[in-house]
Write a protein that binds this DNA or RNA. Sequence first.
RNA 1: GGCGGCAUAGCCAAGUGGUAAGGCAGAGGUCUGCAAAACCUCCAUCCUCCGGUUCAAAUCCGGAUGCCGCCUCCA
Length: 463
Amino acid sequence: MNLATGGKAVVDAAGPLNIYTIGPSLDEPDDPDAWRRLVLSDVLARHLARSGAQVKVAVGLADLDDRTLSAARAANLSRADYVAGVLARIKARAQSLRLLPETIFEPASASVPQALDICRKLLGKGQAYEKLRSVYFDVRRDKRYGNMHLMDMDKLSVGKTVDLDDYVKDNPLDFTLLKRASLQDLKLGDVIETEWGNVRPSWFVQIAVAGLSALGRVDVLVAGEDHQFPHLENLRVVWSAAGVEPKAWLADRKLAREEGVALDLDALIAQTGNAGGLRLWLLSAAYRKPLSASQQSLSMWARNWHKVQETACGLRLAQGAGGNKGKDIPEDVAQAVFDLKAGLAQALEDDLSLHRYWPRLFTFVKLVNGWLSAGNFPGAAAALCLRQLEAADAVLGILDLSQMPVPGGSLPDAVRALVDEREAARKAKDFAASDALRARLAASGFRVEDTAQGPRVYALASV
RNA sequence: GGCGGCAUAGCCAAGUGGUAAGGCAGAGGUCUGCAAAACCUCCAUCCUCCGGUUCAAAUCCGGAUGCCGCCUCCA
């Protein structure tokens, strides 16, 4: 696993492990860059949990910052009402994107007293100072500040583009802990009364404290490219005051946007087909490289998703169907299953490099499709392949298990009768009748596809 | 202007010294009532450009060009 401090971090999966991700800004809850990050940390959490760790995952949401306030005001809502709405929306989205249900979404407003405590502590230690009713962190009081290899502090040209006279900070690198409230904040009641006056906690304090409040301790932080500096340094410093030192810091890259491609999440889901397709696409490239959001790239991953899903469907039917005499697994099947399993483990363990797993998956899919279409695939072998695919999916969460074909034996009698009738019509080359029966099946909520191994029946997604 | 990152086929993308994975698109074939798939074959003498190191470089070094991020709001 890569560490933002330059090297690799080895995370011990033996004990409890807390993963914290910086969530979307509340004025832009559908930000696809944020969701790429959330899906990545979800996969990390699933993987570590399967490796035996006791994993807790939380997503930090800054709901007291200027962006949230101005979004609420633009929507003509109180801050609390606006936040409640957005939070509900984010949670619904998380569910539809199959984030682990135990993922905690932690708004900063839930832990204001802790935020103030940390500020008092920093002031008490002399690491922070008050000026004109705002509280700032003094970066010169932290020897390690700037050591994260994110930015060479000596080369930072401080004040190059800033008129230093506009700052009340002692040093331009110092960052705000508590910001004095504006008159408008005061009027709308979006302030916190403290010994320093009416203030609001800064983004850094909000995110830092939300993490502590949700998890108690942060072991792995998943951030975005544009959080790298100074956000990560600032979080580190605040956490350090609370005695918390994350072991690993990850930062993923943003989407590579293309002219004319809509990047709101719903449009992306439509283009990648469904939630599983979106997850697959979000995970398709190395997280430390930009993810191409071009039309071609999206449709490519939609097709790739479909291919994997189809293979899972084929296996589902083949595992029960005929040819299951003998428990012998052909050697090439055992090898393919082993390769798939090893490929995933290797990819996950080496810096979550799933981009190196996809070729293995496609190889597996192609092999399986070959066996499947040859028609003499032993049921036990199909079952083994399917089990491995499902094991992989427990980490990846890309397959749509609700869209699996229904084995003939499990269909309602009436539906099965229609399917049989349609097969008879097809045999008799009465295609008009066959198409009519397909329409009747659709009306009963089923979709039929013909394959060399007989008709494949799916339950249509319930609307 | 400063700092950092990236540059591989029409597109996406692996590959950090030993002679270019994989996918999408495309071409041809098999299968096919329709629909949807699937299977087989082909598709980069070359990795942005220029110079250097080496027996050997897409991979290392120097330079050029282009793109992205940060250094400015949020903070």
